[in-house]
Design a protein around this nucleic acid. Structure first.
Length: 303
DNA sequence: TGGGGTCAATGAGTTACTTCA
DNA sequence: CGTGAAGTAACTCATTGACCC
């Protein structure tokens, strides 16, 4: 499951970064895309301290969605002044609660799951942990693991839209036998993972940019030194065959050949500003040696 | 067995929007 | 009708804790 997810992510990120070098942030959220949805006005309390009941279908050959595990929120009483998401969603879901509660009682615990699933790791992962509140002491929250199938469906959905409107959320939750809150959390975490991955990619890219520019700077410094040495050496200076065809950039004192770099239609910039697109275009002609196309290509262009 | 990685879940903070006096 | 305060929903971000290797 993890590998598949990572590969998908890498693919999408690759496509993204190849076209938008300087648009590192994914515009995942489109606030206007969420239609208003009548929601209960009370607030929510997270199920901290509760356990999550799951049921597993390891090894069973039920249809996809029916073998997907059922997860319920713990029925832990609110300890803070807020009403829980769980309660809100149970209102939304109507009778799903009893269904899931019943389902959670038929699964196996970890050890039992091992016994049932044997060596089939996928099947094991598809199986949900089921630990009731009684057997699991208070205050510990049990780790829920979404099944492979659930993750796949969520991934597919995420590819289509990285945010969900309430209708989509409810539909997905119903389809996967999850609480809407769980679907919501999954999407939130998925967006966070995508962003993190994108940040890593951007960081790597900027590092390479920095290395390229450092290398360029080193070469230019060397070039300046050489030209200065040339200027200070009269003999060599006089021996030069192209003195009259060369001009010096007044700001950086770099030598250029006006025949190739300057024309009435394309005058040289009098001051070298930051390295920008214009400089990129003229860099090759200012350079005393041909710049490798590869190097020029490595300089990012802002679209 | 301890540690690191992963991931579902949580809480705090922010933003956009609605309602109401 | 315009406006500001209050409430709400949905989001991001940082973090927690369970689980796995």
């Amino acid at each position: 499951m993890m590998m598949m997810e990572k590969e998908d992510l890498a693919l999408s990120l690759g496509l993204n970064t190849s076209t938008n070098y300087f648009l590192p942030s994914l515009s995942l959220v489109s606030p206007s895309s969420s239609p208003s949805w009548p929601m209960p006005s009370h607030r929510l309390l997270g199920p901290s301290g509760g356990s999550i009941s799951n049921v597993g279908g390891a090894g069973e050959t039920r249809p996809l969605l029916t073998m997907i595990g059922v997860n319920r929120a713990p029925s832990v009483a609110a300890t803070a002044g807020k009403v829980s998401d769980v309660e809100e969603e149970e209102e939304e879901e109507g009778g799903a609660s009893s269904l899931n509660s019943a389902a959670s009682s038929v699964g196996g615990k970890r050890a039992e799951r091992h016994a049932l699933a044997g060596d089939d790791h996928d099947a094991e992962r598809a199986c949900f942990r089921v630990v009731s509140d009684e057997e699991d002491g208070e205050g510990s929250r049990k780790k829920l693991r979404l099944s492979k199938d659930q993750s796949a469906v969520l991934e597919e959905s995420f590819k289509k839209h990285s945010t969900l409107n309430p209708k989509q959320k409810l539909a997905l939750a119903e389809q996967l036998n999850l609480r809407p809150r769980q679907v919501e959390v999954w999407f939130q975490n998925r967006r966070a993972r995508t962003k993190l991955k994108q940040t890593e990619v951007d960081c790597e890219f900027l590092k390479k940019c920095c290395e390229s520019l450092t290398e360029e700077n080193r070469r230019l410094q060397k070039e300046v030194q050489e030209l200065r040495a040339l200027k200070l050496s009269p003999q060599l200076y006089m021996q030069m065959t192209l003195p009259t065809t060369l001009t010096m950039c007044p700001s950086c004192e770099r030598v250029s050949n006006p025949a190739t770099t300057s024309s009435p239609a394309n005058p040289q910039p009098s001051v070298h500003r930051q390295y920008n697109n214009h400089d990129r275009q003229t860099a090759a002609s200012w350079a005393p040696f041909p710049l490798e196309p590869l190097f020029l290509d490595s300089i990012p262009q802002r679209s």
